[in-house]
Write a protein that binds this DNA or RNA. Structure first.
Lengths: 128, 128
DNA sequence: GTAACTGCAAACACTTTGCGAAGCA
DNA sequence: TGCTTCGCAAAGTGTTTGCAGTTAC
């Protein structure tokens, strides 16, 4: 088992994610972390995000088009992505683990569902 | 309305997708098309794939990690991606359009669901 | 004829990697 | 001390774009 060390940069990255209720991309996290530690490098952010996901300390949202997102939530849930502003939101739809067992051909580990459409903010903007 | 022209390269790209029952990435399609037309450029392949998707002539599978795939079928369905060989397969699970209406906060257009796990081929290989 | 399409190369967004230096246990 | 992590720059992957020349209608 590989030893895991605590570093300042890791703490700050974690803090940024915890403090932020949005879903941030790696790059957005990098920008925010740099406010607290201007010398940090992008590679360090991505490396730590990967480690934190593996440790189960943060959640990872896989997005087909564009950058993957990270959030503080642990339990699985579905997401919605706005085609206009490209932001990612949580949905209220409950995660249905039983779907994984519907496929006899594969040994399914988990699944993701992503809804596409227009968020309320962008619907508003479109009217005006 | 913009005029759409038929070109040789577009026909070949379409043919490659129709002939192939797998789910190919843009790059894989490029490789196959080049067998028939060595002078074709990658940009042309991607441009035509995009057009064909917009015209509804081919399907587009959005994959979070790695390259997007294209296939010949029109109707929506879910996919499975093997974590070992990274191939993408169709699932038998019926597309549930009604999920789109469960979210009052957003105007949902469509959704994708992607299952992750191990395909039967890779399960076999793992045993040996 | 003229708009759409092509090939090329360069740019792009996001992420990973190699390497020597720094720092935690 | 020794292994993890860091910062930097460079590479990698998948895709798009700008442009000048070519082609379909």
């Amino acid at each position: 088992m590989k030893e895991v060390r605590n570093t300042n940069q890791k703490d700050i990255i974690k803090q940024v994610i915890m403090d932020n209720k949005d879903h941030l991309t790696g790059d957005q996290i990098y920008d925010k972390v740099k406010e607290h530690m201007p010398s940090i490098s992008r590679a360090t952010v991505f490396r730590n995000l990967k480690r934190l996901v593996q440790l189960g300390e943060i959640g990872h949202i896989e997005i087909p088009d564009g950058a993957d997102c990270f959030d503080y939530r642990q339990h699985e849930h579905y997401h919605f992505k706005c085609n206009d502003c490209h932001r990612v939101f949580d949905t209220e739809i409950p995660y249905d683990k039983s779907l994984d067992d519907l496929n006899p051909k594969f040994k399914v580990d988990h699944h993701i569902t992503l809804f596409y459409g227009t968020c309320s903010d962008c619907l508003e903007k479109r009217k005006s």
